[in-house]
């Protein structure tokens, strides 16, 4: 990031004309170009694999942010939506032979339906109550799946998890030997999720959500029904998370309840959004881009030597970020950007 900014500093005439908005646009475009060119410039499969993991988490965190960031509620149960999407995608392909592309969408719809069932009663709760209820729902589903071998004839396979049947390289079956196709798929998904969030910020729904976040009672007095709009946002968020769960299943070719519906997975999504900057378009992306590699690098370098140290470091970063960057990492970045553009104008 820093590198790109300094490049921009070298071209002040651009900033002069544009100011903050153009500067940000430029940065987004530059990031987009880098993202598009990345697997071509650096085709090393492990590198591309790591980038896919980063993008997947960025996508999931963006989906989480879609409701939680804008409503100001903390969901620690989003993994249940990912689980529904992941399981549905695999089962629809392995049992019915229907392409995972369609399966992912069905999984997303199922997740959205579940979200309405969960969200309808729970959105009345505030703060920690809401957070704890989402954990409880997700844990109920996790324990149930882990202990259910078949449900209505559907083989959930209990705690053993289910695998994606291998068919070899195939677009229809969403299976590739190389990493690059997965990369572009998740990149497109991420861009769509970012666009959806960007659109939300400028929509009536986004406006209502912010009003609800600011002062729920006042919003209600204005005739905004908090429950209704929150539910709509939650359903969209759950749909996106469910589709992401489908991607997880196709990419890792395996789903199990312990991981995909686990509390830790939910916590990861929430942490990335919050550390990056919840309630902003690019915050969750930023959080995922920074935190996933930190986790991966510390695990690779320290995991075998001093087990646990990498999680300690992760925890300390979390504490520091919550204490000193309450609006997320995106906040200082924004101020740097606007300062840069001001400097540009005065020069």
């Amino acid at each position: 990031m820093a590198l790109r900014i300094s490049k921009n500093m070298g071209a002040p005439q651009l900033a002069t004309k544009s100011g903050y908005g153009r500067m940000a646009t430029l940065l987004v475009v530059a990031a987009g170009v880098v993202a598009l060119a990345l697997p071509i410039a650096m085709p090393d499969p492990y590198f591309v694999h790591s980038c896919i993991v980063v993008l997947l988490f960025a996508y999931m965190a963006t989906s989480w942010n879609f409701v939680c960031g804008y409503v100001g509620q903390l969901s620690i149960g989003h993994a249940m939506f990912a689980g529904v999407g992941g399981y549905a995608t695999v089962l629809i392909f392995s049992r019915l032979g229907i392409s995972p592309w369609l399966g992912m969408l069905v999984g997303g719809v199922l997740a959205a339906m579940l979200s309405v069932v969960v969200g309808y009663p729970t959105f009345r709760l505030k703060g920690p109550y809401f957070a704890l209820t989402t954990i409880a729902f997700a844990e109920m589903i996790r324990i149930w799946v882990e202990n259910t071998d078949t449900f209505l004839g559907i083989p959930l396979n209990g705690a053993a998890g289910i695998t994606v049947p291998l068919v070899g390289e195939s677009w229809v079956a969403f299976q590739f030997n190389g990493k690059t196709p997965y990369y572009y798929v998740i990149l497109v998904m991420l861009v769509l999720a970012l666009l959806a969030t960007w659109r939300l910020e400028r929509s009536k729904l986004g406006f209502y959500l912010k009003a609800i976040r600011g002062d729920r009672d006042a919003a209600e007095a204005l005739g905004i029904s908090p429950a209704r709009y929150q539910l709509v946002a939650l359903a969209i968020s759950a749909f996106m998370t469910g589709v992401g769960g489908g991607f997880y299943a196709q990419f890792f070719r395996y789903v199990n309840a312990d991981r995909l519906i686990g509390v830790e997975f939910s916590i990861d999504l929430a942490l990335m959004s919050i550390i990056g900057g919840q309630g902003t378009v690019f915050g969750p992306l930023l959080g995922a881009v920074l935190l996933t590699p930190i986790a991966e690098i510390t695990r690779g370098h320290l995991g075998g030597v001093l087990p646990g140290l990498h999680i300690v470091i992760y925890g300390i970063i979390l504490i520091l970020a919550v204490l000193y960057l309450p609006k997320g990492l995106i906040d200082p970045l924004r101020s740097i950007l606007s300062r840069l553009s001001k400097n540009g104008r005065s020069a």
Partner: peptide
């Protein structure tokens, strides 16, 4: 209500549990 406090204590939990492991 300070939701961030919940996150802070989640960080404390990660640190304490894994320091104990180490």
């Amino acid at each position: 209500e300070p939701l961030s406090a919940l996150l802070l204590t989640a960080g404390v939990y990660l640190v304490i549990d894994n320091l104990a492991l180490m």
